[in-house]
């Protein structure tokens, strides 16, 4: 059984719902109408293109093509994280790319290999949606985590210098900032796990239910993806910070100013 299709004219009618938020923003004179219009147009065009592309990818179901698509998603996430965190692409793109690659591969392989008992990892229906969900959460968490880490070192320069002067290695002196970054970056995922099902029905569960599966099956998928997301997020933040240190600090242990955009 497949999800109930939405026809073109029905979806077009769906845009009518936007009258309400637009009316609120006009009434309150909130100056974001231009931005919102651009975002809605972008969302529509991007998703239509992705839909067309994924149709081809799913039809061909070629492991190389699927792998390439995941790699493209990782590169886009890499650029988006550095852009969102206000950090230099030239200095930090490679360490972050490696962090995302490792942080995505471990939970993905575990999810497909162990939880879905040895299904084909690079099969389009697994690797693309599951990889996308893990990566999307890694993106949000890494923007918070990597930005927090480098900003707290810059803003707390006196405390950082004090610790270097007390004999701390770079890892020892930055440990309080690492803790802070992990705490802040993982907070939304931890809150989501604590309230899932009570406040909202999350994406994967909704998708499985709309796809026609029993809610009990959907729950199993949701638990598995939450664990995979939390694992992937934790790994990518830690690796992104640890691997980017070499590029971000000079040999005296001082933060390079040029890593900030």
């Amino acid at each position: 059984m497949n999800a109930e299709p939405i026809h073109f004219w029905n979806l077009s009618a769906g845009y009518g719902l936007l009258v309400l938020p637009f009316a609120i923003l006009l009434w309150t004179k909130t100056p974001v109408l231009g931005k919102i219009t651009v975002s809605i147009v972008r969302m529509t065009i991007q998703l239509l293109f992705v839909g067309l592309y994924l149709q081809v990818v799913f039809k061909l179901n070629n492991p190389w093509l699927n792998g390439l698509w995941v790699l493209v998603m990782i590169v886009v996430a890499d650029v988006s994280i550095l852009h969102g965190a206000g950090l230099s692409f030239r200095q930090l793109a490679l360490p972050l790319l490696i962090a995302l690659l490792v942080g995505l591969t471990i939970p993905l392989v575990y999810f497909v290999g162990v939880i879905l008992h040895g299904s084909d990892l690079l099969e389009a229906r697994f690797v693309i949606p599951i990889g996308g969900m893990i990566l999307g959460n890694c993106l949000r968490a890494n923007i918070i985590g990597v930005r927090k880490y480098y900003q707290s070192i810059r803003q707390g320069q006196k405390a950082f210098f004090q610790q270097l002067a007390e004999g701390a290695t770079l890892a020892e002196a930055t440990r309080p900032c690492l803790r802070l970054a992990l705490q802040e970056a993982l907070a939304p995922t931890i809150a989501m796990m604590a309230t899932v099902g009570l406040v909202s029905l999350p994406g994967m569960m909704t998708g499985v239910i709309l796809g026609g599966s029993d809610p009990s099956v959907a729950v199993m998928y949701q638990i598995a993806i939450m664990i995979a997301i939390f694992t992937g997020t934790s790994i990518t933040i830690l690796l992104a910070i640890v691997l980017s240190r070499k590029a971000a600090f000079d040999s005296y242990g001082l933060l390079k100013r040029r890593i900030f955009r």
């Binding site: 707390g156 006196k158 405390a159 210098f161 004090q162 270097l164 002067a165 007390e166 004999g167 309080p176």
Partner: peptide
């Protein structure tokens, strides 16, 4: 650095 102790102006101890 392990030979030197430093007390900063208005120390920030975290």
């Amino acid at each position: 650095r392990s030979k030197i102790a430093y007390v900063a102006q208005e120390p920030d101890l975290g």
